[in-house]
Design a binder for these strands. Structure first.
Lengths: 144, 144
DNA sequence: TGTGATTATTTACCCAGGTAAATAAAAAGA
DNA sequence: TCTTTTTATTTACCTGGGTAAATAATCACA
């Protein structure tokens, strides 16, 4: 019988451990984990409004603003006013698009190595169980 | 077939979601999640050296120092010099010991509700799979 | 048209994780 | 003993999560 605290404690620890590994890998590119998630997002969907980004990543707006400001300074992205003057359209720079495939490959390798002890079936099951946390009977889940 | 990125993305999101819920609950006691983990630790093991705490929680020393300073200010703990003058022995205050059982109970209820969609077997399996992440074949794991 | 509500973003300020480098005390060794 | 190395803690500074409140532009609608 496992105590619930142990589960949550280990969840927390694993996430910290993974983030540390990712940051270590990204150090070569002068990038940080949360910046990478935004680059990944833009690569996947193309130019996005800031609101689209934080809603997709499920974080708060100010968190995203701060990270984007840093990324603009280090020339990963640009933010320009949309037709609606309240909006800012975020877009990858050419430099970002050039390096992106290489980083994507490295991250992919790291992720695979972190999951190397789990078969595809186990990964799928883990994913399923993970999504059940915080879910209520017959309710839509908060994570999508 | 689930992409590895999805797994890590969801892991990250779930931990943020859980931390938010815990912080919401702890708000009533003017406590924060990481402070709670330290109280829990002290409740379990009794007075500890700072080093024992951060090694057990698997975080860095400065992180722990900062949190302990806050907790000392808000009267949850005391830190007094040990026989080895470099050490600081951390101990729960009487006030902390008085309120602790109530908080423990609330947290326990929250954790159970978050896991309510998983049977005991599923929880055990989830715990097992979680621990496999980052593990290498035939190697000791970094989380214990 | 003009006013009030809504929406997108930002600013200011928390807590919590990390690293690098500084202290200060203890331990080890010549 | 005295010098060097190690250990425990702290300080300074970075990223990244959160909330509350401030702008500024747009929308809704009388």
């Amino acid at each position: 019988m496992i105590s619930t605290s142990d589960i949550f404690h280990n969840l927390h620890q694993q996430v910290r451990f993974i983030t540390k590994e990712v940051n270590e890998l990204l150090k070569d590119y002068h990038l940080y984990s949360s910046q990478w998630t935004i680059l990944y997002c833009l690569d996947q969907f193309g130019p996005m409004k800031q609101t689209d980004i934080w809603k997709y990543l499920n974080v708060e707006a100010p968190t995203t603003t701060r990270t984007l400001v840093r990324m603009e300074k280090s020339n990963w992205i640009t933010r320009k006013e949309g037709s609606d003057k309240r909006e800012r359209i975020v877009r990858l720079t050419q430099e970002a698009e050039d390096v992106l495939p290489v980083i994507k490959e490295s991250i992919q390798k790291l992720e695979e190595s972190l999951l190397s002890q789990l078969s595809s079936e186990e990964q799928a099951h883990f994913y399923y169980l993970l999504k059940q946390i915080g879910a209520k009977k017959g309710e839509e889940q908060h994570v999508y």
